[in-house]
């Protein structure tokens, strides 16, 4: 948690310093825009957190640890790909569920795979936004090209963990 504070603090200071040398828009205007974006989050995040911690109590731990735990390896990565692709909804739904799944014993590589699959394949988003906006051809090519990305991210995480020892 402390590293999260530090990361953000440094990032924010760097951006503010960089911005200081530019003219429009000023710090005040940027802060107003930020506040406008934050208002809905102040409602959503508490609800999402509560739902996440309740769901964590209900998720069958042994089942999750068996299917998606560190020891599940490649099979867990493939299961995570499918789960991520069909997981409906935006970040407000996905991240609390991810939190609950990690609490129930999901491995790092499997969770990276799940989040990546949810990010790039997101079938609900394809149906709701992408097909109407971009059409079948563009969407189809994109999905084909992106099929392997989620397992690839999982494998890279495994390799990274191996490098760290």
């Amino acid at each position: 948690m402390i590293s999260a504070y530090l990361t953000l603090g440094i990032l924010l200071l760097a951006l503010m310093g960089w911005r200081h040398r530019q003219a429009e828009p000023g710090h005040r205007e940027i802060a107003v825009r930020g506040w406008r974006q934050m208002r809905p989050l102040l409602v959503r995040i508490p609800i999402a957190l509560l739902a996440g911690s309740f769901l964590a109590m209900l998720i069958p731990r042994e089942l999750v640890a068996g299917l998606l735990g560190e020891a599940s390896g490649m099979q867990g990565i493939l299961i995570a790909t499918v789960l991520g692709a069909i997981m409906p909804g935006g970040p407000m739904i996905t991240f609390p569920i991810a939190l609950a799944l990690i609490g129930a014993g999901t491995g790092m590589a499997q969770m990276v795979t799940l989040i990546t699959a949810w990010s790039v394949l997101a079938l609900h988003r394809v149906i709701a936004f992408e097909l109407p906006a971009l059409g079948w051809r563009l969407t189809g090519i994109r999905l084909l090209a992106c099929l392997i990305l989620a397992p690839l991210a999982g494998i890279l995480t495994l390799l990274l963990a191996g490098l760290r020892g």
Binding site: L8, L11, I30, G34
Partner: peptide
């Protein structure tokens, strides 16, 4: 909460950038 506040501000700066 402090993280969210800082994150949203970072986002607003990036947008302005």
């Amino acid at each position: 909460l402090p993280i969210v506040v800082a994150a949203v501000l970072v986002g607003a700066y990036v947008q302005a950038m």
